[in-house]
């Protein structure tokens, strides 16, 4: 098993980050082209806690290294199942993801948490456990894990850059909408 961890700070409020998070993989983010679709499977507000629970299916298309591609049966499309929990009271977003495809070869489970540091800054903490399951030589397992961690690291870095772009666009669009709204109100007044 290999563990990948990273954390960073976004200079945006938790409200902005948690809202933009729903459209992290939109056309504003040109750094994560491997994510080709995000579908919502279920969503509800827990009546006891007020926590918003969402299940999503994330579809990726990314070619694997040649030697690994043959293990994966020649397909480059994969699916990730994500369950997320938003607690608006304690201001915490938790997202737990696991791979659906190639789960007989490698198990990737990831947890991401967004929490406020201050009124204008939000912390992102990511942890992933990567375990190769293919039977046989330890050498092969290690190679599968190494390749997965390497790809994970690349995607995480690009994901951050892409999310920064989404955050900036969201703030711009929001302030433009606010201005339009104000202009409308002034016209009516």
């Amino acid at each position: 098993m290999k563990v990948f961890s990273s954390d960073c700070t976004f200079d945006y409020s938790w409200e902005e980050v948690s809202t933009a998070n729903w459209r992290k993989y939109c056309p504003w983010n040109d750094k994560s082209p491997h994510v080709i679709a995000v579908d919502t499977l279920s969503r509800h507000v827990d009546p006891d806690t007020g926590i918003l629970r969402t299940e999503r299916l994330i579809t990726c298309k990314q070619s694997a290294p040649q030697w690994l591609a043959s293990l994966m049966g020649g397909t480059d499309t994969s699916h990730v199942f994500e369950t997320s929990y938003v607690d608006p009271e304690s201001k915490k977003v938790t997202m737990v993801s696991t791979n659906l495809t190639f789960s007989n070869i490698v198990s990737v489970s990831e947890t991401v948490v967004y929490q406020p540091i201050s009124a204008t800054r939000t912390q992102f903490v990511q942890d992933a456990k990567i375990t190769a399951l293919c039977g046989g030589w330890q050498k092969i397992k290690n190679a599968v894990e190494e390749a997965s961690v390497c790809r994970f690291r690349e995607n995480a870095q690009k994901g951050k850059e892409g999310f920064e772009a989404v955050l900036a666009m969201s703030r711009r669009v929001f302030s433009e909408e606010k201005q339009k709204q104000q202009a409308r109100e002034e016209m009516l007044a």
Partner: peptide
């Protein structure tokens, strides 16, 4: 055929609910 894969994944995600949907 993704519906079957999802069913399996849901089975494995029950413990996440226990940890993250805690009652006050």
């Amino acid at each position: 055929g993704i519906d079957r894969m999802l069913e399996e994944a849901r089975e494995g995600s029950r413990e996440n609910d226990a940890a993250n949907l805690r009652r006050k």
